[in-house]
Write a protein that binds this DNA or RNA. Structure first.
Lengths: 259, 259
DNA sequence: AGATCAAGTTTCACTATTTGAAACAAGATC
DNA sequence: GATCTTGTTTCAAATAGTGAAACTTGATCT
């Protein structure tokens, strides 16, 4: 599940040090980061210093710990507005949510993983960022499989390399082979399903959003086995398709970074 | 209003190139960035290439434009969870919102500006990121002034240097002097007010959240002149104070990056 | 079609920054 | 007060960054 990016010089290395800190879900000491780092002490030390100066990290001198910096939040806001599908999909998602009344996720691909950029749900006025910015696996989520199914062979192979195939539930695909078989079905049918592959009791139907034949994102409707059967998911094919088409249409007019 | 960070080597320069792209609120061509850049053509070119490789930027070969990369969204999610006040303030904000029924903002300071990290509002089930990640001026917002009023002289001077003093409305402070006078009042009273200084018709009451005497954030309750008078704002002093105290209390137990 | 121009990309000798082993400092712990 | 752990600084060698200029590509004009 390791996300590897090519190492362009100092910038690439410094960013990989930043990811090290991000991987901890709490403020960390220098020595903790060092243990997980491929860099020598002095080098890592200078990286963290630089990142702190730049506001990508924060340093608390009292506790002697580093945590992720707020400058990232500001930059992400720009990214989210400028190049995610979320802003142009707002109205469509509102409408779809009004129609189906189930949890809805809008996702894109990032480094072989699924990145959630927007969500509608009944439960509480959700903490912002709780879902936007969150990542999930591609090989065992509805949105992930929907996008994978639309990739050309070369891109698909590259993406498959990045999958962890961790066995989340008894229904999770164990390897690339069985996954590929399902991807063909998804291609033929135009919809993908999550049949408790990621979390027990959670199922969903999803569909890719295409621009010039390439997947730029995916939309899913999620429910639980307690409330619905697999067959029930198909009731939402129509509104889901319509929403996907509307987002694709809106994306056409907006200069859009494709996968 | 230029946000200047010290330039630590290549990383700093590359990040300042990233900010150039962020400043445009749309995908941009290389030449457009170049016009606003202090770097020579070849240098900027390499920066944008590196940033693109790293996923901090996206490049659309069809349109020949750069936009902010989705990796930032992922990193920001980590930052927001790890070092913003938002996660620990959820319940407090829910309670406060239930009590006052007005728009609520939770903000922190970043590079002399106000950074909104959480919000509660009646209108729509929150667009994520719409407010979280957004920045605003410190010198003419309730949250901004509340935090400025708690700074020691040296830090305050540094922060004032970064203020633009753009005249948003007829009520906006025109310079550091009149602002300082108000900051003393705020210090004495413990509450700050926005009296249509940022937007005509919008007023608010705000209070800083302190940890070890230093402001780590601020909380505000916003309304309009159409619905409430300045005096009405004082009705919310009690619930606002309680919420601020509760957040400060929660922050104490969590290792927290101070300003 | 050919000429002209603008936008983007590559080259390469020159420079400046990064690197990391090792020495050093500052607290904690025994 | 000796020892260990954690964090910080140093400095010569190694590497990566710099940017003027040349080049490529594709659009626009005559």
């Amino acid at each position: 599940m390791n996300i590897v990016r090519e190492n362009d010089g100092t910038v690439g290395k410094a960013l990989s040090a930043l990811e090290l800190v991000a991987a901890f879900e709490r403020p960390v000491r220098f020595s903790e980061v060092l243990e997980h780092s491929p860099y020598p002490k002095a080098t890592l030390y200078r990286f963290l210093q630089t990142l702190t100066n730049q506001g990508l990290l924060q340093y608390d001198p009292d506790q002697g710990v580093y945590s992720m910096g707020m400058r990232l939040v500001r930059l992400a806001h720009a990214a989210w507005r400028q190049s995610s599908l979320a802003p142009i999909s707002r109205d469509v998602l509102d409408t779809l949510y009004a129609q189906v009344g189930q949890t809805i996720h809008l996702a894109q691909m990032d480094a072989g993983q699924v990145l959630y950029v927007e969500k509608r749900t009944a439960i509480r006025p959700v903490e912002m960022f709780s879902q936007a910015g969150k990542v999930g696996p591609a090989y065992c989520t509805g949105v992930g499989k929907a996008m994978l199914a639309c990739l050309d062979d070369v891109t698909l192979e590259a993406a498959l390399q990045k999958q962890a195939f961790y066995q989340h539930t008894q229904f999770t695909h164990a390897d690339a082979e069985t996954l590929k078989t399902e991807l063909s079905q998804i291609q033929a049918e135009g919809f993908s399903y999550d049949r408790e592959e990621h979390e027990t009791g959670i199922i969903c139907i999803a569909k890719a959003i295409l621009l010039k034949g390439r997947p730029i994102g995916a939309l899913s409707i999620t429910t639980t086995t307690a409330r619905h059967s697999f067959d029930d998911l198909n009731e939402w094919k129509q509104p889901l398709t319509k929403a996907v088409e509307q987002i694709a249409q809106a994306a056409k007019n907006w200069q859009f970074p494709t996968l």
